[in-house]
Amino acid sequence: MVPQAWYLLLSALLFGLGIAGFVARRNTLVMFMSVELMLNAANVVFLAAARDHVPARGSACALFVIAVAAAEVAVGLALVLALFRLRKSVQADEVRELRA
């Protein structure tokens, strides 16, 4: 049986790649993809932690995370569309109206 710590380490790496993409990229679409990576890493932790205890409960929690991710993508992509209509660009750097 693969040790639980391996799964946790892997999810930490996936989460880190997600953060790196979110802070280093300026394309809003790729930033949203990075958020999806982070949510996936959270799911790996849920399932790995539940494996030796109550696996069905971990699956139920991961299902909630997937539903939240789907809602987030729908709203996020609508935001990207609205931004593109306003700016003709999806670069996050170009939206700075709120900056003093």
Binding site: V2, Y7, L14, N40, N43, L47, P55, S59
Partner: peptide
């Protein structure tokens, strides 16, 4: 990640 879910015994997920 889906393959990892399978190795964790969560086929439905």
């Amino acid at each position: 990640v889906a393959g990892l879910f399978l190795t964790l015994g969560a086929g439905l997920l």
